[in-house]
Computed example of a mutant assay.
Amino acid sequence: MKPFNVRVYGLLVEQNQMLIIREPFAGMIIDKFPGGGLEYGEGLIDCLKREFIEELNLEIEVLAHFYTQDYFLASRFDENEQILMIYYKVRAIDISKLKVLDQDIQELIWVDLDELASENLTLETDQLVVEMLLNSSNII
């Protein structure tokens, strides 16, 4: 059986702005939603909460599932590995505790919801999620 890499991301809106992070990935700098890889024995929600604490020092509440990628996506690192991306709407328990802890994160980008566009993100699936958000009656 080929390996799977499950990635879990949070859509965080604070004061009408969406959080995007800038970090290196596959030899380039990308803008993406906060989150990361599921570890063995971990649930999706636990993964997302762990990633926000490890990367951004933020405790979050997961509000709702938003999207699970439903098409094949091969890893950029290993063509024999399949990526599965899952997105949740989240809220920060205390946004004042936001602090970048992950040294790979180069910048936190807050984008006004009125200016949010798929071009704000690098990865194809993130761009699809933005389009879905913009077509939704309730962004967050």
Rank of each mutant, 00 (worst) to 15 (best):
Leu19Ala: 05
Leu134Gly: 07
Leu134Phe: 10
Gly36Phe: 07
Val111Arg: 13
Gln15Thr: 07
Cys47Ala: 15
Phe77Gly: 08
Leu116Cys: 09
Asn16Thr: 02
Glu115Pro: 00
Ser118Glu: 15
Tyr71Cys: 08
Phe72Glu: 08
Ile30His: 02
Glu107Ser: 08
Leu11Gln: 05
Lys2Leu: 13
Ile95Ser: 15
Asn5Val: 02
Val111Thr: 12
Leu38His: 04
Arg50Glu: 04
Val111Asp: 01
Leu63Gln: 13
Leu98Trp: 04
Asn80Lys: 02
Ile86Leu: 01
Val13Thr: 06
Leu133Phe: 06
Met132Glu: 07
Arg76Leu: 12
Ala92Trp: 10
Ala74Glu: 14
Tyr87Pro: 02
Gly35Val: 07
Glu119Gly: 04
Thr122Ala: 11
Glu124Ala: 14
Glu107Gly: 05
Ala74Pro: 09
Asp112Cys: 04
Leu38Ala: 03
Asn80Trp: 03
Glu107His: 09
Lys97Phe: 09
Ile95Lys: 08
Glu131Gly: 00
Tyr87Asp: 06
Gly10Glu: 04
Thr68Met: 12
Tyr40Gly: 00
Phe72His: 10
Ile83Asp: 03
Arg76Lys: 11
Leu134His: 11
Ile29Phe: 05
Leu123Ala: 00
Ile109Trp: 10
Tyr40Gln: 05
Val100Ser: 00
Asn5Asp: 06
Gly41Gln: 12
Pro3Ala: 15
Met85Thr: 13
Glu81Gln: 15
